[in-house]
């Protein structure tokens, strides 16, 4: 069972990355909206995944997107911060009943509101770091913050939609 789940995760990771670099980066949604949804892969890893493994996976997935977007190290850095702070966010959002019996973050088991907050917090962390790194070689704080806020909203919107679609399709093996 565990192996099947990981195979699904890898397929999901490849699909998200492909969607990110082939479609999303090229969409001109608006001057301020540059959504990044591939961090969702790291967000949905099981709670019990060793933290060093989460960090390494985040680093690799960030670097792959960097290669396609010619943004050396920017996505990798932002993904590492996300991966590092993930346990803190899960602790912050612990439901009253705890995470007992729940293996991985999912909308099906933890509810829409929980998932929305979880995605919102982690995406904000990721986007804030990423857009600040972009600006290092450029200056205009108000523009960056507006950029970050608009992009976070759009990214989370997409992530929640993905979560809806995929939790519906795999009822049987929901984690």
């Amino acid at each position: 069972m565990q192996v099947t789940r990981w195979i699904w995760r890898v397929i999901g990771w490849i699909a998200l990355t492909a969607f990110q670099v082939l479609v999303l980066t090229h969409l001109n949604i608006g001057q301020y909206v540059h959504p990044y949804v591939f961090p969702m892969f790291i967000m949905l890893l099981p709670f019990a995944t060793p933290r060093w493994l989460v960090l390494i996976l985040a680093f690799i997935s960030g670097l792959i997107v960097d290669m396609f977007n010619n943004t050396p190290g920017m996505h990798a850095s932002a993904m590492l911060v996300l991966a590092f702070l993930r346990p803190a966010v899960t602790r912050l959002l612990t439901p009253i009943t705890g995470y007992e019996g729940i293996q991985a973050p999912s909308m099906g088991r933890l509810g829409f509101i929980w998932f929305l907050l979880y995605a919102l917090l982690l995406t904000s962390i990721h986007h804030l770091v990423y857009f600040q790194l972009e600006v290092l070689s450029f200056s205009n704080l108000g523009y960056t913050l507006l950029n970050t806020a608009a992009s976070v909203l759009f990214s989370v919107f997409l992530m929640v939609n993905f979560a809806f679609i995929f939790s519906g399709n795999r009822q049987g093996e929901r984690t």
């Binding site: 680093f59 670097l63 050396p72 920017m74 990798a76 850095s77 991966a83 590092f84």
Partner: peptide, 19 residues
């Protein structure tokens, strides 16, 4: 975990700034 984070983060930033 913290040291691994630091190491990988330094590598990423090195990519960024050397480029």
């Amino acid at each position: 975990v913290f040291f691994l984070f630091l190491l990988l983060e330094l590598i990423s930033l090195w990519f960024l700034f050397s480029n």
